[in-house]
Design a protein around this nucleic acid. Structure first.
Lengths: 298, 298
DNA sequence: CTCTTTATTGCATTTTCTGCAATAATCTCT
DNA sequence: AGAGATTATTGCAGAAAATGCAATAAAGAG
């Protein structure tokens, strides 16, 4: 039994007339007759009780009508699904992201995606650091990465989602709390909370460079597993922590105050990265959506 | 897209290797390659990203896997269903029956059928008279009829389900209530309840013949639409009514007493009838079941 | 009983499918 | 970076099948 058999069977079952069925199938009667006969032989069951004047379904034929229609519908469904996937309307998009700022971005993207693109499933992979996320893009384990990188490998395209100023999170009872700007030199004697040091950590590098250029070695009293924990420690008065403006905008804790660091020469770029030659239409769709939801920073 | 395309696609999607897929399909690689290519062209979507070393599904290909499996399953299901129907395990059996005794028989048959043959649906058509039920068998509107017939048309096969004695239903306060036997002559002065007179009604004919041979014209005081109503009227003391032993065995009303009529020479036969050349396997199955549930009366 | 209708069969043709051999492309290993 | 090996693809020829026309047969309708 193959699809032509099913199509032929349904035509005859609906017309109850070999001639009209053949007409509907744009062919001559003999092939119709042969196809039905072959199908009956293969199944070992008579499907029609026919003579030169009347064609009617046998009991078995009756029972085949709905399953046969189901088969045709399964073909239509498969075609619909695969073409929707081809147009990028459905599919799986794997996103790796590292860091507090990217969590905010991914959150927005996921929310909008779920509303506007119900056929696309996002697989979100929170990484601890940006560099492994980039590695996963290169190996094809994920489709899109969000993070901060100094070096972009060949074959990877990036787009800047946000240009973030460096800010210092300080406890509310800190002597500079409430100030809008400060210099890192004002903090040479402070206690600091940092994230775990990791090669390729843009923020970590910046922090060290800032302190060194101001002529001091920071006193790191606590290493936090993630930014949110670091901010909590600041809130608890453990010390200060260098972070970015996006985090400042997404924290509303009266015990924490954020101060822009003026001698942080240039802002750090939060990027989205994907393979140049990627061919997944669903990824293209998400990239396009992200251009609306997360505009390129100036 | 036809079933061969789907089978080929699934083989390649599962092996992720054109050569092994071809092996599994018992053919050479080239046809596999061509089939996939043709399918991709037809759908307008790339299904595999392949080079000489690696074959992997595209996003669209991924999405096609399950629908493709559904198609194959739909074929298997259709085959299973139609062959079950061919073996008489599923299908529709239409049964027409007329009269109180047949209701009892059909009830038993329906109960057993539902338990033992869950795939067979019985369509029960209660008729008021046996003759139209037989007519529906001849026209093919029903598959099996139950009733009492004097004449069996050619091409119809019958089996005797019960050989019923004639009994008189009398009110409990009747002078003969409690007697086991009686003669119709004892009732020449009684009031009678009958069913609507209808040509071909075996019981009606018998009743009239009995009375006439006993030399009286029955005093019919009430015509009931069916036997159960007639028995209710007897119970209410309206009069007596001639019926059959099956009814007597299925009524348990203290206000009604049943007396066997001894001068009712021969019992009446309750029959099951179907077309001699009927080819519906489900009907065969039900006929076979009925031989167990409703044995042929001696 | 004849005529008409219509499914089926015979046969020739065309189309499609299949397989072998050759090719090309790319990944892996040195 | 280059050589080798693996494997998908293409060309072509042969085989299988599907299709259509014409003829046949069978069954109902008048």
């Amino acid at each position: 039994m193959d699809s032509k058999d099913v199509r032929t069977f349904l035509a005859v079952a609906e017309e109850l007339h070999f001639g009209r069925a053949a007409e509907r199938l744009h062919m001559a009667q003999p092939p119709v007759s042969r196809t039905i006969r072959a199908l009956e032989d293969e199944l070992g069951v008579a499907l029609f009780k026919r003579d030169t004047r009347n064609v009617q379904l046998t009991n078995a034929g009756q029972e085949l009508v709905q399953p046969a229609r189901d088969i045709m519908e399964a073909f239509r469904r498969a075609t619909r699904i695969v073409q929707a996937a081809g147009r990028g309307e459905t599919g799986l998009v794997r996103i790796a992201y590292a860091g507090a700022s990217t969590q905010v971005m991914v959150g927005r993207l996921a929310r909008e995606s779920r509303e506007a693109l119900p056929g696309i499933v996002l697989e979100l992979q929170s990484q601890n650091f940006a560099q492994p996320a980039m590695a996963r893009v290169l190996t094809g384990e994920v489709d899109i990465a969000l993070g901060r990188w100094d070096h972009i490998p060949a074959g990877v395209v990036t787009r800047v989602l946000a240009s973030e100023n460096l800010v210092l999170a300080v406890p509310a009872n800190h002597r500079l709390a409430g100030a809008t700007e400060c210099s890192i030199t004002d903090f040479s004697e402070e206690h600091f909370i940092t994230l775990a040091p990791h090669p390729g950590s843009v923020l970590g590098d910046r922090f060290r460079k800032l302190c060194h250029s101001a002529g001091f070695e920071p006193d790191v009293v606590q290493i936090a597993p993630d930014t949110w924990t670091a901010i909590s420690l600041v809130s608890a008065g453990v010390g200060c922590s260098l972070t970015v403006s996006t985090v400042a905008n997404n924290v509303n804790d009266p015990n924490v105050s954020f101060i822009t660091v003026t001698d942080a020469s240039e802002p750090v770029a939060l990027c989205m990265a994907w393979l140049e030659n990627q061919e997944n239409a669903a990824v293209d769709t998400i990239l396009k959506l992200s251009e609306e939801i997360l505009p390129t920073a100036s």
